[in-house]
């Protein structure tokens, strides 16, 4: 983002998506946002607009937000057609009004995707992401069962790459940016994070198959390699992880065909 070029207060017009509920029809409504300090965050600007709406007897604009420091993944506005708005590598809450100019018309919408139905105004239901994680986004390790932490060294480059993938905040901007509303970057990040680590190997095949199948079932689209996802990602997670996941998926699919399983997986003595 560019440095502050103005310290003077200014005014903009907002064109905001208003929708009373999932089943109701939505529409854009215009609001004036006046006397804005360029050092305000975008969400603080919405706070001010909402307080004015409340005092006028109107219902404030519902928007999702929490940590306001770009890490919880709650905030999720599409601003002027871009998930999380102008600026690279930021979430909506990290966007500051100094990015806009006097008289700008700013269009604010929820993240749009079939798998993310609108709950109200700018708030969507992203529980589909939790369902994908439930299918396999974990390493099974009950509390109490873990071996000594330094027993298995992890080469630093692997650990660093795993961390790059693990920085995903689960906001869904990748889905909103994709013309197919694909969740490939989200799933690939988790699959790669765990698959790069030695402790993630035991469940590696099962994980990628289960997560990919669940993603399909939940109505996310396919990847057609446009990489809008990485461009919109507030953590700039690389689309290279998608290629990595595709390799994992292929290997796991082939292996699952030829897999020999023990006939007696349970049971016990005594």
């Amino acid at each position: 983002m560019s440095a502050a070029t103005t310290t003077k207060n200014f005014s903009v017009t907002l064109r905001v998506w208003r929708q009373a509920g999932t089943k109701q029809a939505g529409r854009f409504v215009e609001y004036a946002a006046k006397d804005l300090d360029p050092n305000m965050s975008f969400l603080e600007m919405l706070d001010v607009v909402n307080d004015e709406l409340t005092l006028k007897g109107d219902e404030p604009i519902a928007f999702a937000h929490d940590c306001r420091e770009g890490i919880c993944g709650t905030c999720s506005c599409t601003i002027n057609g871009k998930p999380h708005g102008p600026g690279k590598g930021i979430a909506t809450c990290q966007l500051y009004m100094r990015s806009f100019r006097e008289g700008d018309l700013i269009t604010v919408e929820p993240f749009r995707a079939e798998a993310f139905p609108v709950v109200k105004d700018l708030v969507t239901d992203r529980s589909a992401f939790d369902k994908i994680q439930q299918a396999g986004g974990f390493i099974t390790a009950r509390a109490g069962s873990a071996p000594e932490a330094n027993a298995a060294p992890v080469p630093k480059p692997d650990a660093d790459l795993a961390m790059d993938a693990a920085t995903c905040i689960g906001c869904g901007a990748c889905v909103a940016a994709c013309k197919n509303a694909s969740a490939m970057l989200f799933v690939a990040a988790k699959v790669s994070h765990l698959g790069l680590l030695p402790q993630g190997q035991a469940e590696r095949d099962r994980r990628v198959l289960a997560m990919a199948h669940t993603m399909d079932e939940l109505g996310f689209g396919n990847c057609t390699n446009q990489y809008e996802c990485s461009a919109a990602c507030p953590k700039l997670i690389s689309h290279d992880f998608i290629a990595r996941m595709n390799r994992d998926y292929l290997t796991a699919s082939v292996r699952s065909v030829f897999k020999v399983e023990s006939a007696s997986s349970g049971g016990g003595a005594g």
Binding site: F138, I139, A141, A143, G144, S145, A146, P147, E148, A149, A159, A162, M163, A166, H193, L194, L197, Q199, G200
Partner: peptide, 10 residues
């Protein structure tokens, strides 16, 4: 620390 490493905390 053991528990978190086993879960894949990078």
């Amino acid at each position: 620390i053991d528990q978190c490493v086993a879960q894949g905390v990078p």
